[in-house]
């Protein structure tokens, strides 16, 4: 190994003058835009890890179970994404909460943990989240991850907002990014469109967070 390196290093010594050159762009994307030089140091601490395939960080486990003792709610949780129409995908049964898997993971502070469930469905009738609007600030909500570790939250706010005005950006990309957000529907029901006019949203912070 070392012997192999001897040749290139010696060769390099000849061109060690710090002549700057633009590094060739290997990507197909054009790099033509002229951008101003930046002279400040970029960072003092940079995270470094092994790039070996076996060392690729595994995503933290998603939530598996939701418990709200004060409302006698205990639900299983399933990961969901975006529905084809651009709305949040939901589990068809109101008994199961959907966890938005492109958001945060419980306990990881990598984004808000968003859980949504139908307030009702044709088979079950009213689901557990129909009780959400009765929750009180300070109530405990426990989300248990797939690996069995529980994360406890305390409710900080409850809102019922018309869907025309609801700030979904706060829900999905809000700051601080470690909140638990529970979403369901409420308000008047538009029988022609088959949807409720409001979102009921419960905000909670991890225990110990401020």
């Amino acid at each position: 190994m070392r012997a192999w390196w001897a040749v290139p290093i010696l060769a390099l010594a000849a061109c060690s003058a710090a002549t700057e050159q633009a590094v060739p762009s290997a990507s197909s994307s054009a790099m033509g835009a002229i951008v101003a030089p930046v002279t400040a140091p970029v960072a003092s601490v940079v995270e470094v890890r092994s790039s070996a395939p076996e060392d690729l960080p595994k995503p933290p486990p998603g939530p598996a179970k939701l418990s709200i003792p004060s409302l006698d709610i205990s639900m299983t949780i399933r990961g969901v994404g975006n529905a084809p129409d651009g709305t949040m995908e939901l589990v068809s049964s109101s008994l199961v909460a959907g966890w938005y898997r492109f958001g945060g993971h419980p306990g990881a502070s990598d984004g808000n943990v968003v859980l949504a469930a139908h307030v009702d469905d044709a088979k079950v009738g009213l689901g557990p989240f129909a009780k959400l609007r009765d929750i009180t600030p300070g109530a405990t909500v426990v989300v248990t991850s797939g690996d069995g570790s529980p994360v406890s939250y305390q409710v900080t706010a409850i809102e019922q907002t018309n869907k025309d005005r609801v700030e979904l950006a706060d829900v999905f990309a809000g700051s601080p990014s470690e909140m638990l957000v529970l979403i369901t529907c409420g308000g008047r029901f538009d029988r022609d469109a088959r949807h409720y006019e409001d979102n009921v949203i419960v905000w909670a912070l991890p225990d110990g967070a401020s």
């Binding site: 709305t87 949504a116 307030v119 009702d120 469905d121 009213l126 989240f129 129909a130 979904l168 949807h195």
Partner: peptide, 17 residues
């Protein structure tokens, strides 16, 4: 990733006001 445009959680009107 496009954020969801809406969260539509209910189709029956059983919890309606």
């Amino acid at each position: 990733m496009e954020m969801p445009a809406a969260v539509e959680t209910g189709t029956q009107g059983l919890a309606a006001d």
